[in-house]
Structure formats: structure tokens, C-alpha cells
Design a protein around this nucleic acid. Structure first.
Lengths: 134, 134
DNA sequence: CCATGTGTACTGTGTGTGGTGGTACAGTAG
DNA sequence: CTACTGTACCACCACACACAGTACACATGG
């Protein structure tokens, strides 16, 4: 089930991308599963078809989905998505951004780490994407 | 010293805000210190004066800086900036955003936490903002 | 008094992104 | 042939960002 929120500051197409990517990473959506059609999901979310198509395009370009012409989009099998340099760059960017966002909130570092650990473990990420598959 | 990078995806005024806020939070800029003038910093960064003014305005609105008419802007004394609800909301938003950014990178949760702990402790944040001052 | 430097507030103008609406086309299944 | 699929366009509007210029009130040093 994909949901979007008007109160969310993120663009609509990004909410869709994040939502689907999260469901794939947690195993809620398994490889081979067919996704709702562009027009169907757009109807359900009451948004434009182009907005859904944009989200699907990004997910396909990043290797999360695969397109079968005339049939639809399907969750692809896990594989390595980024180079080591790109992984490191993105992680560093995410860390810096996180720090900038919490820097004025006066939280203790231990409290921040504890909170992150709780939310990270609650997801139960499938981490078999870079190893154990050919 | 404030620097901006053209390769950074963040808007210029946000880079300025983050940079100054970080320097205040780490104690690199002490309360009472006078900041570069709007026109001076704009000249130094080869950026429009309005862009610098926008950054300074946000920092002043959030309580990091204080304006003395005709004199300039100065680092204000630490104090509580947000309500408890706002603090919690912003922390939650930052955590969710961080997770969304690293979810496809196939990092082990422990590795993520270790990295965050390292970068957080390296900053040595001044955490006396909500207690011990009147 | 006057010139200079300070923040602040406007009014434009241009560019890029996000979102919507509509049309069109190739591939697949019934 | 019909209906569904993704995909690629086009046009339009709204908004944020950045730049450019002007103006005003304040404080300081001549």
C-alpha cells in the first residue's frame, strides 16, 4: 500500500519513490511482484499520471524495478546498485545533512544515536544485496 | 570563515545558514562576536546581497543571531530555541530522511551507527543551550 | 551637519523544479 | 480489434532560488 501526505514537505514523486523503495528494502515487496499500473496508482492517489511515471522511472533507473514492455513494472532481484565511491559519497552526504538538521535541537549525542539505532533496527533491512547473488 | 561550494546541491543561502550555525554550535563563533556585514560577505562569496541577507534573517529568526540597528549582527547567547513538540518533530523528520537516503546503500546498521557516532563526537557540540542559563 | 557603513524592505527579472492536463505511440493479452 | 501496459512528448501554472537595483532608518566618525 502506497500512501502520500499533503503535510509532507517532500515532493509527491519523492514520497512515492521513498515509500516503494522502503517496502522493497524491508522485504514487504518481494522480487517479481507486479506493481500497480501508472494510471491505476495515479487514480488511487488522485495525482497526475506523469508524477507516478516520474517516480517509477527513477526506481527503474536505480535498479529497484524492471520494466516488461506491455506488461508492467516488477520488483527486480537484489543486486549491487552503487560503486564504492558513490556509496561513500552518499553516506557522507546523509550524515552531514542529518547533523545539520539536529544541530540546533540540543539533543545529547547518546540520545540521537539511541534513537537512530531504534528506528534502524525496527526496519529489519534486507542486506543481502551486495553479496550472495550473482 | 564561511565557504560555499558550487558542487553542493543545497541552495546558497542554506549553505551559509548551515555553516554559521555549525560554527556557533561548536563554539567556533562565541556569543557577542560580530559577523561580516551583509555586503561584505556577499562580496567575499561573490554572491548577491539578498542571498546573504536571507541567510542572516533565518539565523536571526531562529535566535542564533541578534541585530543591533546600525551596528551589525552578533552571535546571541545560547537559549532554548524550540518547543518540545517541535524538537521531537524535527528529530523524527531528520531520522526518517536519513534512513531514506541510506536505505539503498547496503550498509550494515552497526556500520551506520558507528559512522554517525564518530562524526557526532568529532563536533563537540555545546549542549548548554537549554539548561544552566537564564 | 554630513558621509559612510550597517540591516532591512521593497520591486522587478530570469531560471529551474514540481505538478497538472492532454495527446500519442509501441508492446502485450484477451 | 479492444483494452491495458509503459513511455515520450507538449503546454501551462506555481513556487523557490538567485540576481539586480533602489530606498529607508540607524549608528558612528569626520
Amino acid at each position: 500500500m502506497i500512501q502520500i501526505s499533503t503535510g509532507d514537505s517532500r515532493p509527491i514523486f519523492r514520497q512515492i519513490v521513498d515509500s516503494i523503495r522502503l517496502q522493497i528494502a524491508t522485504g514487504e515487496l518481494e522480487p517479481g511482484t507486479k506493481l500497480p499500473s501508472v494510471r491505476g496508482l495515479a487514480m488511487q492517489l488522485t495525482v497526475n499520471t506523469n508524477t507516478v511515471a516520474k517516480a517509477y522511472n527513477e526506481l527503474t533507473a536505480q535498479g529497484w524495478l524492471e520494466s516488461r514492455p506491455g506488461l508492467g513494472l516488477f520488483v527486480s532481484k537484489p543486486r549491487k546498485l552503487f560503486s564504492d565511491r558513490e556509496r561513500e559519497r552518499r553516506l557522507n552526504e546523509a550524515v552531514q545533512q542529518f547533523i545539520n538538521q539536529v544541530i540546533g535541537l540540543d539533543y545529547d549525542p547518546d540520545e540521537l544515536l539511541q534513537r537512530l539505532e531504534r528506528d534502524l533496527r525496527a526496519l529489519d533491512i534486507r542486506s543481502a544485496r551486495s553479496a550472495g547473488n550473482e
